[in-house]
Amino acid sequence: MTMASTVSQYLNDRSAAYRVIPHPHSATSRETAHKADVREDRVAKAILLRDEQGMVMVIIPASASLDMRAVYDETGRNHLEMVPESDFGSVFLDCEVGALPPLGPAYGIPTLVDSSLGRSDTVYLESGDHESLVAMDGQEFDRLLSSCRHCDLSRDWY
């Protein structure tokens, strides 16, 4: 599979400057970083949450873990839970299962972005498959997600 058509259209409609980096098949964001030979803290990992009000996407560095308390504080939604990968297909029709692009607005999903990502020189995004990353400048990433709330949402693994 190649880049998801929704991702490609979203980037092109916004005249985003990006490049596609192929890499060997990977199953997780951290594995993707290693196989693409990029730093984990520069790979944007999407986490999909859901409650009775609907879905929320949270985007954090692959090197970090999600701080659910911070998500609750930002949203006021105390019952958000992770959406199982098996449920992704109903929203991400053009993506391989588990290759969740960190571009919630492209899919009509309210999105929170960890503030640390925009401070990176380069940010890498899953493209909707397990064998390519989208690379762009951190400021370009911030511009693409300027309509989203940017806040501190993660804790480092290390």
Rank of each mutant, 00 (worst) to 15 (best):
P105D: 03
A106F: 14
R149V: 06
G138R: 12
R77Y: 01
R155H: 14
H79F: 00
S90L: 05
E126A: 07
G104P: 09
G89D: 02
A135T: 09
V113F: 03
Q139A: 15
C148H: 14
D94I: 02
D121V: 09
T122V: 15
Y107D: 01
L100Q: 00
L125I: 05
L103A: 04
D121T: 09
G108M: 04
M82W: 03
M82C: 08
P102L: 11
D152F: 01
L117A: 09
L144I: 06
P110T: 07
L145D: 05
C95K: 07
S90Y: 04
V91D: 02
P102G: 12
E81A: 12
A99F: 01
R119P: 05
Q139E: 15
F141C: 14
G76N: 04
L144R: 07
D114Q: 11
D129M: 12
D121F: 01
T122E: 10
L125Q: 03
S146E: 14
E96H: 02
C95D: 05
D129E: 12
R149Q: 14
G128N: 04
G104Y: 08
E81T: 14
G89C: 07
H130Y: 03
R149N: 05
T122I: 10
L133K: 05
D129L: 10
G98A: 15
S154E: 11
P110S: 02
L133P: 08
D142V: 14
G118Y: 06
C148M: 08
P101K: 01
E85W: 00
R149D: 00
G89V: 04
S115D: 06
R143F: 08
H150D: 09
L117Q: 06
L145S: 11
L117T: 05
I109E: 02
L93Y: 00
R77L: 00
A99L: 09
P101V: 10
V83E: 01
V123A: 09
R143A: 13
L103F: 13
L112A: 03
L145H: 11
Q139I: 14
P102K: 12
